[in-house]
Simulated scan of single mutants.
Amino acid sequence: MKEFERKQLLERANKEGATIGASIPDEIEVQGDPVDLQKFVFEIKRRDTIPSGERERVDEAKKNLRRERVERLSKIEDNEVSYEEGEQLVESIIGIDRALNALDQLRPVDLEQEAQVQEAADQKRWMKFLNKALGRDGKNKGIRR
């Protein structure tokens, strides 16, 4: 592969908006093992948050995807592939980036924060109930019976 072609491929692989409109590959080989990447990402993303039991699995998948991205990019950087193979690698790198973006957007479930929010809501409902029961629901301000 010619130097300008290699640079062009590297620029495409590292372009900021490269993932816009890109799709997550159905299946990809990561560290020598086939992974149903699209199915995995959609399964996790469907939940909108990462359940505590899945957090380790998602973190491991993200780590492996980042490692695979670096390995594929280095093949282009080290000029180990033809231009055609480089184009395929770039497309797979963009797909990996798209999957990583989707997984990075998920927020972990913070159980402690969720418990605090729930407790605050419970206290608010309780105070509203008490005020209504005691005749202090705001309608009779200043009037005593």
Rank of each mutant, 00 (worst) to 15 (best):
R46C: 05
E11T: 06
A22S: 07
R47T: 14
V70Y: 02
E114W: 01
F40E: 02
V117D: 14
D26I: 04
L37S: 09
Q31H: 03
A61L: 15
R98F: 04
E119C: 13
A61R: 14
K124E: 11
K39F: 11
S23V: 10
E77D: 04
I96F: 08
E112W: 12
D122R: 15
L89P: 04
E112A: 09
R12P: 03
L103V: 03
K124T: 10
N131R: 13
K75F: 05
L10W: 01
L73R: 15
F40I: 12
E84L: 10
R125W: 15
R67K: 14
I50V: 15
V35I: 14
K132M: 09
G86A: 01
S52L: 12
S23K: 07
L37K: 09
F129G: 00
K62T: 11
G53F: 12
L65I: 11
K128G: 00
N101L: 09
S92P: 02
K139E: 02
T49A: 13
A115S: 04
D36P: 01
G17V: 01
A115Q: 06
A99Q: 07
I96N: 02
F42M: 15
E60G: 12
K63T: 15
R57Y: 04
G17I: 11
E85G: 06
Q105P: 00
R46G: 14
R66P: 11
R125K: 15
E27M: 15
I44S: 00
A102G: 05
E11S: 02
